[in-house]
Simulated scan of single mutants.
Amino acid sequence: MDFILNEEQKLMIETARKVGEKFGPDYWRALDAEKAFPTECWQAICDAGLTGAMLPEEFGGAGLGMVEVALIIEELCAAGAGATLAQIFMLNPIFGGVSIAKYGTDKMRAEWLPKLCSGEMQFCMALTEPDAGSNSLELKTSATVEGNGWRLNGQKIWITGVPQSQKMLVVARTTPVGQIEKKTQGISLFMIDTKREGLSHTAIDKLGTNTIPSSQVFFDNVLVQGDELIGTLDKGWHQLLDVLNTERIVTTAGLIGAGRLALKLGADYANERRVFGKTPIGAYQSVQFPLAQHWAELEAAKLLNLKAASFFDNGLPFGSESNAAKLIASQAASAVAERAMQIMGGMGFSKEMHAERLWRDARLFRFAPVSEEMILNYISMANLGLPRSY
């Protein structure tokens, strides 16, 4: 078991660090206040060749693996972005890139993947519904046959990055539940234009992750062309899981980066702030110990996450590792951001110090893209052999 990074990995990390440092905490604070998408930052990431790290070389990618993607995301997020930047990787290299690379047609791969890598094209995915959150098999959005295509009707919620995208990966039922033996049957994936007649979306006002919008999406008799099917008709559920399974690795990498940044902010303040004398507050064990605890938690989450990424790259099951890593990282990132605020006292409540944004953004990932409770359900059944509890 080798924990030593190779030269290519070191170079990619250094590249990510340099790009990330160009867009430090002040950049993200300004965008958060404006609720503006980080267009300039994302383009710089694409220009540096980091977007397509795990996509095929023939289409503009680097042909590397999920380990490299996790390392890149962590470094970018630690430089100033916090956890939010990982979401843009989910939208593009994962939801767009993985689905097209694995299940798209030759035409889709040749036309869309180079534009994804260059930043010319962005993607989003419409899966979650008002009555189908964690239980995605209860989705109601339907696609009914019309000629050589389909008509799409339904509603989605908490869909990320819709206004910036050109393409949307839509998950819909193509065969009604009453006509199938299992709910995993009759589900299909489509890659459609975001701007299309009958497709509308409205923004959701939210606590954090303000630099990437979340929307409700409505499909009102939207025409889907026959060549917009991704994968196999009616057999899209397991193909969807192939796309979603890496989502947790990406999320965890972003949380580890956010946790590292919060640790630095807290420790830097503790080294400088002096009260009741000349000793910096960082000399107090009540300040040191919580930060040390969170450092250990983040390191543990990172090792688990890289193990999951390595398993993915080698075609091995990685569900337990990716779930456990996400559980630890989400709790640690939220806790260390709040601890940094506490160390800063009243100043921690100000936007000037950045910790409050890191806390607001990280808090989302305690229940998204999968909640702590569902992770614990999974571990209980898969790793402890306990009966299903839901």
Rank of each mutant, 00 (worst) to 15 (best):
L306C: 07
Q293N: 07
E299C: 10
L291I: 05
D313C: 10
A300Q: 15
R360T: 05
L298W: 10
N314C: 07
F349R: 09
L291P: 01
I343R: 01
A335S: 15
L358S: 09
N314F: 02
K307L: 12
A362V: 06
A325N: 08
H354N: 14
E356N: 07
L316N: 05
A332K: 00
Q288P: 02
E352V: 10
E297V: 01
H354I: 04
F289A: 14
L306D: 09
L306K: 01
L327D: 12
H294P: 02
N305F: 05
A324E: 15
F311V: 01
L303P: 00
D361F: 04
L304Q: 12
E297R: 11
Q293R: 12
S310M: 09
E356R: 13
H294D: 08
M344L: 06
A337I: 03
G315D: 11
I328L: 13
W359R: 14
W295E: 14
F312Y: 15
E352Q: 12
I328D: 02
G346A: 12
L306M: 10
N305Y: 00
E338F: 04
R360K: 15
D361I: 12
A309T: 11
N323L: 02
L327H: 09
P317K: 10
G346N: 09
L291V: 06
A309N: 02
S350F: 03
M341R: 12
F349P: 03
